[in-house]
Every structure is written in structure tokens, then in C-alpha cells.
Amino acid sequence: MSDDTPSGRRQVGSDLIIPVAGIAYAVYYVYSVWDFPPEAQRSGFFLAGLLVALCLIFFVRIGILAARGRVELEFDALLGPPRGRLGRLGFVALIGAYLLTVGTLGFTLTTFSFLFIGSLLAGLKSIRRAAIFAATASLAGWLFFIVLLGTRFPLGPFEALVNMVTSSWR
């Protein structure tokens, strides 16, 4: 179980997330192959059965502990220590923002913004150092991933500007 509380009772709320999500996916999977030929179904049915059975055993174990009053339904363990919790949640949100903007802003600008805000959220105190770090790392990343390796990662305004400048040289 995740954590023992001062009361001596174990927190099990967050322990249930993986089994519940697993069962939900197993049920969806079985639904998705319901009309398929047997060869396409067989392993899915077997695995779904296995996963659900294991999860049920786990629930029974927790149920027994709950009946004895030795567990409590808390999700605290999931969020880590209270210190810096808000920053960590902000970091997760920042990853979401990265996914939403990278297609438009391109590699360099998105990476710069992500590293700048991310390092501050992660506990770096100096804005100046965060800016230097973000600028250095994002430019190095641009040189390595985009210019040298030529990956097809989305290009944005920064890359377009560089293109314009380099084109004018030619």
C-alpha cells in the first residue's frame, strides 16, 4: 500500500487508480473486438480476463483490510510531499501547454518557454539563470535536432526567421 498515515491506517485511494483504469481498458478492449474473428479476439479475451481477475483479488485484499478498519481512501500519496506541490502540478500543466503550442510555435520557442517556466516551477529561484539556461539549452537543441540531424519536428516563427536570414545570405 502506498503510505502509512500517522493513524497507522494505510492510504489506498491512489493504489486503486491503476487497477480501475486497467479494468476500464480491458472492458473497452473486449467491446472493441466483440465482432472480430476468433483469432483476433482470443489473446485479448485471455489478457482481459487475467487483468480483471488480478484486480479483483487486489480489491478483495483491500476489502478485507477495510473491513478491519485498517485502510483509508486518500489520494495524498499521489501528489508527493506537500512542499513544492503546487510547482509540480504547474509543471504537469506546463507539459500540457507544450503539447498544445508546439505545433504552432515550433521547436525552439516552445522549448525555450518550457525550459524557462519549467525550471522556475521546479524550484530555480533566479529568473536570470532560468533565462540563460533556457536560451542556451533551446538553441543547442535547435542546432542539434533541427539543423544537424534534420528531424521533422515542427518549425515555428524562430525557425522561419532564421530561414529568412539565411536565404538572404544566399
Binding site: 480491458a26 473486438v33 483469432e39 483476433a40 489473446s43 485479448g44 489478457l47 482481459a48 487483468l51 488480478l54
Partner: peptide, 21 residues
């Protein structure tokens, strides 16, 4: 088991029909 279940995602090996995607 969760890993195996997730690994079963995608086209089946015989008829190439997508499953659980």
C-alpha cells in the same frame, strides 16, 4: 498484465484489424 493488455492494442496479426485503439 496491464502492460500485456496495452501491448495487445493495435492491428491483429492475422487479419490486420485494429483493436482497442
Amino acid at each position: 498484465a496491464l502492460g500485456l493488455m496495452l501491448g495487445a492494442m493495435g492491428a491483429d496479426h492475422i487479419y490486420a484489424t485494429p483493436r482497442g485503439t
